[in-house]
Amino acid sequence: NQESVVAAQLIPINTALTLVMMTTRVVSPTGIPAEDIPRLISMQVNQVVPMGTTLMPDMVKGYA
């Protein structure tokens, strides 16, 4: 089963992602794949992401 990127903390809107903000977990439905974490660093979220929420492609500016 593929791991997806999950918020390790509350991420406010327009925050640039850092490694410490993200963790990985096997979730359903699947979100952004864990191997894309290096690509996500410094990208901004376009909404508030509560802790434990799976990051979906449409939540990250410039990802999709």
Rank of each mutant, 00 (worst) to 15 (best):
N1V: 15
N1F: 15
N1R: 02
N1M: 15
N1T: 15
N1L: 15
Q2V: 13
Q2P: 15
Q2G: 15
Q2H: 05
Q2T: 14
Q2F: 13
E3F: 07
E3H: 06
E3M: 06
S4D: 01
S4A: 03
V5N: 01
V5G: 01
V5T: 05
V6E: 09
V6F: 02
V6W: 02
V6D: 00
A7H: 01
A7N: 00
A7R: 02
A7M: 03
A7K: 00
A8P: 01
A8H: 11
A8F: 05
A8W: 04
A8N: 11
Q9M: 08
Q9S: 07
Q9C: 04
Q9E: 14
L10M: 13
L10A: 10
L10G: 11
I11N: 00
I11E: 00
I11R: 00
I11K: 00
I11Q: 00
P12C: 13
P12R: 11
P12S: 12
P12T: 10
P12L: 07
P12K: 04
I13D: 13
I13A: 08
I13N: 14
I13M: 09
I13H: 11
I13V: 12
I13W: 09
I13P: 10
N14F: 10
N14R: 05
N14E: 09
N14M: 06
N14Y: 06
N14D: 12
T15G: 04
T15Y: 03
T15K: 04
T15D: 04
T15S: 04
T15E: 05
T15A: 08
A16G: 08
A16L: 04
A16N: 04
A16Y: 06
A16R: 04
A16Q: 10
A16C: 05
L17M: 07
L17Q: 00
L17V: 03
L17G: 00
L17D: 00
T18I: 05
L19V: 08
L19S: 10
L19W: 08
L19R: 09
L19Y: 13
V20N: 09
V20E: 06
V20Q: 06
V20C: 08
V20D: 09
V20R: 07
V20Y: 06
M21F: 15
M21I: 03
M21R: 04
M21E: 02
M21Y: 06
M21K: 03
M22S: 01
M22C: 06
M22P: 01
T23E: 14
T23Q: 14
T23I: 13
T23S: 15
T23A: 12
T23H: 14
T24M: 13
T24K: 10
R25W: 06
R25V: 14
R25F: 15
R25K: 15
R25L: 10
R25E: 13
R25Y: 15
R25H: 11
V26F: 11
V26P: 12
V26S: 15
V26T: 13
V27K: 06
V27D: 13
V27Q: 11
S28H: 05
S28T: 14
S28I: 04
P29C: 14
P29M: 07
P29Q: 11
P29V: 13
P29Y: 04
P29L: 05
P29A: 10
T30M: 13
T30F: 13
T30P: 13
G31F: 02
G31L: 02
I32W: 02
I32Y: 02
I32A: 02
I32N: 01
P33H: 08
P33S: 13
P33Q: 07
P33T: 14
P33N: 06
A34C: 08
A34F: 06
A34W: 07
A34N: 07
A34M: 12
E35V: 14
E35K: 05
E35Y: 06
D36V: 13
D36A: 12
D36I: 06
D36Q: 15
I37F: 05
I37E: 03
I37V: 13
I37D: 00
I37Y: 08
P38F: 11
P38M: 05
P38R: 07
P38Y: 04
P38I: 10
P38T: 06
R39L: 11
R39K: 14
R39C: 12
R39P: 03
R39N: 08
R39D: 03
R39M: 11
L40S: 00
L40R: 00
L40V: 08
L40Y: 02
L40H: 00
I41S: 05
I41T: 10
I41D: 03
I41G: 02
I41W: 13
S42T: 05
S42H: 11
S42P: 02
S42L: 03
S42C: 06
S42D: 06
M43T: 07
M43A: 14
M43K: 10
M43P: 00
Q44C: 11
Q44M: 05
Q44F: 07
V45T: 10
V45E: 00
V45W: 02
N46C: 09
N46L: 12
N46Q: 15
N46V: 14
N46Y: 07
Q47W: 04
Q47C: 06
Q47V: 07
Q47A: 08
Q47L: 09
V48K: 09
V48P: 11
V48A: 11
V48I: 13
V48D: 14
V48T: 13
V48C: 15
V49G: 00
V49Q: 01
V49L: 08
V49Y: 01
V49W: 02
P50Y: 06
P50F: 13
P50C: 11
P50R: 07
P50A: 13
M51C: 07
M51R: 09
M51G: 04
G52S: 11
G52N: 10
G52E: 12
G52H: 13
G52L: 09
G52A: 06
G52Y: 06
G52W: 14
G52Q: 13
T53F: 09
T53D: 11
T53M: 14
T53R: 11
T53E: 11
T54Q: 03
T54H: 02
T54W: 02
T54I: 11
T54L: 08
T54A: 10
L55Y: 01
L55N: 01
L55P: 01
L55Q: 01
L55I: 13
L55S: 01
M56G: 13
M56R: 12
M56C: 14
M56W: 03
M56F: 09
P57F: 09
P57H: 13
P57T: 09
D58G: 12
D58Y: 12
D58P: 11
D58T: 15
M59D: 03
M59T: 04
M59A: 14
V60F: 11
V60W: 02
V60Y: 01
K61W: 08
K61S: 09
K61V: 09
K61L: 10
G62T: 05
G62E: 08
G62P: 04
Y63E: 04
Y63M: 12
Y63I: 06
Y63A: 06
Y63Q: 04
Y63R: 03
A64S: 12
A64G: 14
A64V: 11
A64M: 13
A64Q: 13
